[in-house]
Design a protein around this nucleic acid. Sequence first.
DNA 1: TTTACTGTACCGACTGGACGGTATAGCTTG
DNA 2: CAAGCTATACCGTCCAGTCGGTACAGTAAA
Lengths: 206, 206
Amino acid sequence: MTAQPPARDRILYAFEGLLIAEGERAATLDAVAAAAGVSKGGLLYHFKSRDALTAGLVQKLRILAEADFELMAAAPEGAARYYVRTSVFAGTSFDRTLVAAMRLAQSQDEQVRGAFKEIHQTWLDLIARDVPDPAVARAIMLLGDGLYYNAALFGADGGAEDGGADGGGADGAGADGASPGTAGREAADVESLLRVVDVLAGRVRS
Amino acid sequence: MTAQPPARDRILYAFEGLLIAEGERAATLDAVAAAAGVSKGGLLYHFKSRDALTAGLVQKLRILAEADFELMAAAPEGAARYYVRTSVFAGTSFDRTLVAAMRLAQSQDEQVRGAFKEIHQTWLDLIARDVPDPAVARAIMLLGDGLYYNAALFGADGGAEDGGADGGGADGAGADGASPGTAGREAADVESLLRVVDVLAGRVRS
DNA sequence: TTTACTGTACCGACTGGACGGTATAGCTTG
DNA sequence: CAAGCTATACCGTCCAGTCGGTACAGTAAA
């Protein structure tokens, strides 16, 4: 297991970027290869087909989701608050991958939809463990979902850095810190939503 | 204004069906024409280009949305409840068009995204008029959004009836009845969510 | 240490098919 | 015949996937 070659990661990263910034149609093999700084042949060496490329993204999604589940289950504020708070597009690598996969989920791709369904179910289970009333748990998850989807559809384009010849940086798969910037107003909005969540969860008498 | 020719409506209807059932990539001009029961030439007679076809969909969306706004504003139960209740994919023609347009909104198409943003804003305004607390209004809308998006992404395929010549129905803006079937369980789920909405809106002391 | 061979990583020209769009001829109704 | 609409053939482009080739690292016998 000689450690994942960086080209593979770069390709996946570029694939996500194109999906997020320009949608499924624009994420052609040529475009992905160019954005990743490899040739098309190089891309197809690592992923034998377009399907294999999406499979690679799904695998990455599952791995990142697993890590998120643990954070969510262990969150001191509780799973419900954690879920809503992290549903704004903060630019974590999980966000990136999730939004990219969401674009692919549109096209009835069963592997993507299946992964999404499972992740969703786990989220709901974790929230339900935190908030006993099932209707309230569902409402809270839906609220977070709404946030997530809205951000994914209309929010900040996740395509901060464009591909091109990268020269040096082997940035691997590590989570980059959330970029600052428009975070201010959004943070306030989320704060007020979290108060609503507290009310719903019965933690605060309104 | 010699009343819209039926072929035009059939094309739009088929376009929606393909977008919903198979995603943007599958909704090619040939496929749409075939599903609508016209030739490609016929399609391009009514819509000069793919862009014109999406413009047609956006126009239809705006018209249906306008009608929905009025229903929402006049709903005896209040806009908040109305919004959440109608956010399940009930199979109305507004649902169909909205979900279809959502698929197109992925690809950074500005006309589609713009229409979506406006519709969203109006919804929020209507809910805010019904529910004074802005954070609660936002929460309720997000809840409905979550429902909508989940249904759009994973819900019942809106492709109950496949294209083909549909014979008579000039269905205009009228809502066709929701298909029965899985409606039972979903209705119960929505009922429980509506109770949560009531609590949030302060209409019921929990 | 030269030679021969193997496997991995990558490149880029090419192919066949699909797609958007054009051109044009045909049909039907008034 | 004119208008409104439909069908077919075709063109250029773009795309996924193929294929022959390059570069290089390891390794192993002569």
